[in-house]
């Protein structure tokens, strides 16, 4: 199945209302209102500095918001700490990856399954199961023979896949992916798309920041267009991509 088109949107997972973030005088995110619905792949596009990453940081609690609200399954999550929001089932990647660079590839995966704060296990699957799951994820992302390598010693594409593997190992329902495919060679890029498709059909809801229009067209059910912090469009891909005004902003800024 493709990710485009014909699927029905499920319940609303995330409701963003009038969200705002000011850095000094600059409004990095200004009055953004949008929904992320279960099963839908939303692509967030917009020129550099449009506020895409900032929007993710507001959702995950990595930055405090200046105004507006974010609801997860109807519950206001604005006051929660990032680790609490993560535990609700919202996972993310970082534009600059932020791998656990001195840990091995396998440790990077194991540790995301181990949010315990105590030196002994209170809940969650035993180590053997975690290992098996990590092995499975590493197999799928092509990192199986790198499991004992430190993350910092990986090649560029491998790091991108480790970043993806980390969130594949969580049980999160919503994935926020910050430019996961940027700089990938064509082969890696195909593997990435295939993985994403599998995960989406397995029930994961994805919001992805992406600059490459081929990728945007290839995966989006919806496109949200951000510029100077404002949400200029949030619609089906065809409508957004064919809007000449948006194209002017997008390509104008990038030249």
């Amino acid at each position: 199945m493709t990710m485009n088109g014909a699927r029905n949107a499920g319940e609303t997972l995330l409701e963003i209302r009038h969200l705002e973030k000011r850095f000094g005088g600059v409004k990095a995110v200004a009055d953004v209102t949008m929904d992320l619905r279960a099963g839908i792949v939303t692509t967030l596009v917009g020129p550099n500095g449009a506020g895409k990453t900032t929007l993710f940081n507001l959702i995950t609690g990595h930055l405090p918001r200046s105004g507006g609200s974010v609801r997860w399954l109807g519950r206001d999550i604005g006051g929660l700490k990032p680790y609490q929001i993560a535990r609700l089932g919202i996972a993310r990647t970082f534009q600059d990856l932020r791998l656990f660079s001195e840990m091995t590839v396998e440790e990077n995966i194991l540790t995301v399954m181990e949010p315990n704060a105590l030196p002994f296990r209170l809940s969650g699957p035993p180590l053997k199961e975690r290992r098996a799951r990590a092995g499975h994820v590493l197999e799928r992302t092509g990192l199986a023979d790198k499991r004992a390598v430190r993350a910092m010693d990986l090649a560029y594409a491998e790091r991108k896949f480790l970043s993806l593997a980390r969130i594949m190992a969580t049980d999160a329902r919503l994935w926020l992916l910050d430019e996961p495919a940027s700089g990938l060679d064509p082969h890696s890029y195909e593997l990435f798309l295939a993985l994403l498709r599998e995960e989406v059909s397995a029930g994961v809801t994805v919001c992805i920041i992406e600059h490459n229009l081929d990728i945007v067209i290839g995966i989006s059910d919806r496109i949200a267009f951000l510029d100077h912090g404002r949400l200029l469009a949030d619609d089906d891909p065809k409508t957004v991509l064919e809007d000449p005004a948006l194209a002017a902003i997008y390509f104008g800024d990038r030249s």
């Binding site: 993310r92 932020r98 791998l99 540790t111």
Partner: peptide
Amino acid sequence: SFGRSLKAIRDSESAALAFGKN
């Protein structure tokens, strides 16, 4: 797992937070 959490925090606090670490 406790040691892995410590090392994860040492390597990237923001990523550790994003994966539910208190």
